[in-house]
Design a protein around this nucleic acid. Structure first.
Lengths: 251, 251
DNA sequence: TAGTGGTCTAGACCACACG
DNA sequence: GTGTGGTCTAGACCACTAC
């Protein structure tokens, strides 16, 4: 169907075979010779095409997987990855995940993993400005789906007073909507964005390969005059999400 | 020196050997049994300890590398990763990389890779609001170092008028400082934060393993009344950098 | 049943670091 | 030279998917 140039690459000298092969495949993918979602030749066939062992082909495919260019499915094959990108405004932190998703044409859904009281970890206690050292907070973990794909894991901590008055609601819906319906209006938030590679646990929750980049949106939201309402983090698949902001530059 | 539990893990049934091994090593690393920066046993020794082949050990180490827990150095060994984290405020976009670095105790330095006129790519032309379809812009790429480690690659595009008046300066220093010294005061910016896995090219520039998460800070900065001055992106090592913001929630 | 990717082995050779 | 990680091979068996 298509030709593969086996030797004769410009800078491929001194490069390991698996790099030469993965870079050649990458070119083909980016040139559109493999449509997103379509199947590449099998590992066995690639081994014959490039005249190398299956081990080397597997290393080349691993390189592509790590770069987010292909995904593998046991028993089925190797497939080019399909691209999505949902943008969230930082001006309305995490809070309007649902609105942002719907606005961009995705069906939004949440799945609650846990919602339970625990003794506040030190860092949470500090952020929520709890006076008692070992006060109780509510610990929530939930997965956010868009179009039936898991795209984010949200971990949040609520002061007991807020959580108990909204127990059933918080377990079902999105944070912002639920708080608003409960009469709590957020006024400000301190946020921090970073990125981490997926651990095994996270890679299973979010259906991504080990090590795939995740965006971490750390937030601490306030109501009224700097009264903490919730803190936590949203870990989202970086292939699905980005965050936008308009900033005024202060000299 | 330390014991390794070979079989007998709670949930390790049905898990591949390389996962069991990498998770055990991960526990030891996170428990502090291997100090950051210290050397782990060699692949050969680990193979004897866990009684598996070197291939399986190498896969386990690859798992840890992808999670940013260890780094390998040919001829030397396997080392626990040392942690850094420099935070940048989104309120003063990229512009004060140097100030932020110095404030946090790092020596900042830039290395210019290129600074040359090119025909504006379509996306750049749109962002900079160029009237001519194929106007000339200046294309700059530079690497930002902190404490002698490369931590970010910045790719920027300047309108010709601005670039020509600051040619020599822009090649040497940080964007924000240079523009300010040239009498250009930034007033606002539109930014977008995302994350991507490192390609081969990027992994060489930034001295990270293939696939490591990079933070991408896309920016479009204005002076005066919405007059575009520069657009581009800063790709930074996610193990060194994070972005912070204070946001007011608009109902 | 056939084809696919996932795991694992035993062994070879190379490139690099260090004493 | 010795020890380290990096590359590569040939071959085996398993788990999953599809027909």
């Amino acid at each position: 169907m298509t030709f593969f140039m086996v030797p004769s690459e410009q800078l491929s000298d001194n490069q390991p075979l698996h790099v030469v092969i993965s870079e050649q495949l990458k070119q083909k993918i980016e040139a559109g010779e493999y449509e997103p979602g379509s199947r590449l030749p099998s590992e066995f066939d690639l081994g014959e095409i490039f005249e190398v062992s299956r081990t080397t082909i597997r290393k080349a495919i691993a390189n592509l997987t790590q770069q987010g260019l292909v995904t593998t499915q046991q028993g089925k094959g190797i497939f080019g990855t399909e691209q999505h990108k949902i943008s969230f405004s930082m001006s309305n932190p995490l809070m309007q995940f649902d609105a942002a998703l719907q606005q961009q044409g995705y069906e939004a859904r949440v799945h609650s993993l846990r919602f339970q009281p625990i003794e506040a970890p030190a860092e949470v206690s500090r952020q929520l400005q709890l006076t008692e050292p070992s006060a109780t907070v509510y610990w929530q973990e939930k997965i956010i789906y868009a179009a039936e794909s898991p795209i984010a894991l949200d971990i949040a901590y609520y002061p007991a007073a807020i959580a108990t008055s909204l127990t059933s609601e918080l377990q079902q819906g999105f944070t912002y909507s639920t708080l608003a319906q409960g009469g709590i209006t957020l006024t400000a938030a301190a946020v921090r964005l970073e990125s981490v590679p997926a651990t095994y646990e996270l890679s299973e929750y979010l259906a991504v390969p080990l090590g795939m980049p995740l965006l971490v949106f750390n937030y601490l939201a306030y109501q009224g005059d700097r009264q903490p309402v919730v803190c936590g983090k949203t870990l989202s698949r970086s292939d699905w999400t980005c965050y936008t902001a308009e900033v005024e530059v202060i000299p």
